[in-house]
Amino acid sequence: MSDASRLWVYLAASPLLWLAMTLLAYAIADRLSLAAKRHPLVNPVLIAVAALSAMLWASGTPYATYFEGAQFVHFLLGPATVALAIPLHRNWPVVRRAIVPILAALGAGSLTAVISAVGIAWAFGAPYELLASLAPKSVTAAIAMGISEGLGGNPSLTAALVITTGVLGAIMVTPMMNAMGLTDYRARGFAAGVASHGIGTARAFQVDPVAGTFAGIALGLNGLITALIVPALMAWLR
């Protein structure tokens, strides 16, 4: 065995390589996003995921091997969700005054997200398992996978649809809100959180701290309400 292939065998078996590659891909993607002045199309998640997918494909690395390294980053999603309590606490006076619009927008947005996605895919002839995997696509991955599993969907496909929705929302929110002439950062952030969970929230924090706070609230509340309404709505389609 050559020295190079021996090194590869060692690296491929340790979590070090793919943990480092995940951070490298993101560091480059974030630099690009900064250089493009946070242009919505230059989305750091999209670029990093594309780069890593290419690396995994080129090296023939299975996703499970990759995840052994990347799980340390993935794990931080939990503590980061808890950390949303800090901007919520700091901006509480602003949030409390907006409690009525928050609840109204949450109900409307949550229903729209589920019914429009399932309705369109159903019109295209998607089978039930796919519809069940798609229904919770606007909520954060952990909740969405639980909902999908409970309905007989495919949780890992749901995770892929959730991430795609997140990236789409993060790309669309700024140009759409500008085109609609909406300047209220509370509404813009809240919409990003309802439609595209944590990736939308990450985008909202890039734009404005108040938008980020409202996106974080939307992410938590939408996870809760979607877990309640999706099983009821999907019972119709069975």
Partner: peptide
């Protein structure tokens, strides 16, 4: 953590290919 929230979705995102 919140400034780098995007990074935390990358591992799950790389699973889309499968």
């Amino acid at each position: 953590l919140l400034a780098n929230l995007s990074l935390l979705f990358v591992p799950a995102g790389a699973g889309i290919m499968s």
